Amino acid sequence: MEINFNKNNDGLVPAIIQDVSTKNVLMLGFMNEEAYQKTVETKKVTFFSRTKQRLWTKGEESGNFLNLVDIKNDCDEDTLLVTVKPVGPTCHKGDDTCWAQDNIQTFGFLTDLENTIQNRKENQENSTSYVASLFRKGINKVAQKVGEEAVEVVIEAKDNNDKLFLDESADLLFHYLILLQAKGYKLADVVEVLKSRG
């Protein structure tokens, strides 16, 4: 891998640190060529500290190491994306990230949808929404809806109408997310089960 350590005349390149599982950005540090080589050799992320003017392995004092998974160079060969498995919090202030955010798995739009479903569940008595009405009818009705939507997906899978198949697939996923919350779970719980089957 060709890395341009001399582009900024200080021998340093930015290193963006990303959790390999959650894909969250944990911190930004700087590496010189020596820090890069040490990171590759030890599999522990090492930076060049601009304040201490020396190499600094993240976790050398706290034990909160960043275990190296992979390093990628950007298109200009002057910025690194370093994927890691963090041990403990990343920020020196004790936070998961240097932006004081929890390092939790999210699924973009599906997480937003889950949050909406949770809100409707928590406020079901005061809501006229379809989701709230399902929660009011109880687990049996929610489970029945998932079964109905699953059957409709199977039926549409046997035909050639892609739009209907995708519509029914969306309905199934939507009702499955409702069922998960009716049982006290979220998509992340299912993902953990799948990961454990590795």
Rank of each mutant, 00 (worst) to 15 (best):
D167A: 11
F65P: 05
T106C: 02
D112H: 09
K38F: 02
E148H: 11
R54S: 01
K85Q: 12
I3P: 00
Q118P: 01
L68Y: 08
R50H: 11
L179V: 07
D19T: 08
N126F: 15
D70R: 11
R54Y: 01
T128P: 13
N119T: 10
N123G: 06
T83N: 08
V45W: 13
A100L: 09
V20N: 13
G147N: 15
K163G: 05
K121S: 06
T128S: 14
F30S: 02
F30V: 01
K7W: 04
L55Q: 04
T106V: 07
N32T: 09
K141A: 10
D95M: 03
L134A: 02
L80E: 10
K52W: 09
L164C: 03
M31K: 01
Y36E: 01
D76L: 04
L68Q: 04
K163M: 08
L55G: 04
L172P: 09
E34R: 04
T79K: 02
N32S: 10
T128I: 15
D74N: 09
S21C: 05
N67W: 08
V20K: 13
V84C: 03
L26Y: 00
I139H: 08
F109M: 14
I17D: 07
M31S: 01
T46L: 03
E152C: 09
A150G: 07
E77N: 15
L81K: 13
F109D: 11
G88K: 01
K186S: 06
S127L: 12
E125D: 12
T97I: 07
K163N: 10
D78V: 12
V131K: 03
F30R: 01
I155N: 07
D102I: 07
E60Q: 09
L55T: 03
N73F: 12
V190R: 00
F174V: 14
S21L: 13
L110W: 00
T90Y: 07
S127K: 10
D76G: 03
L55C: 04
T128Y: 15
T111Y: 05
D167R: 08
W56Q: 10
S49R: 14
A35S: 14
R120Q: 14
F30Q: 02
A100T: 03
K163C: 05
V154R: 04
K195F: 02
C98F: 13
D19A: 10
N103E: 06
F47S: 13
I178E: 04
I178P: 03
A150H: 10
R120G: 04
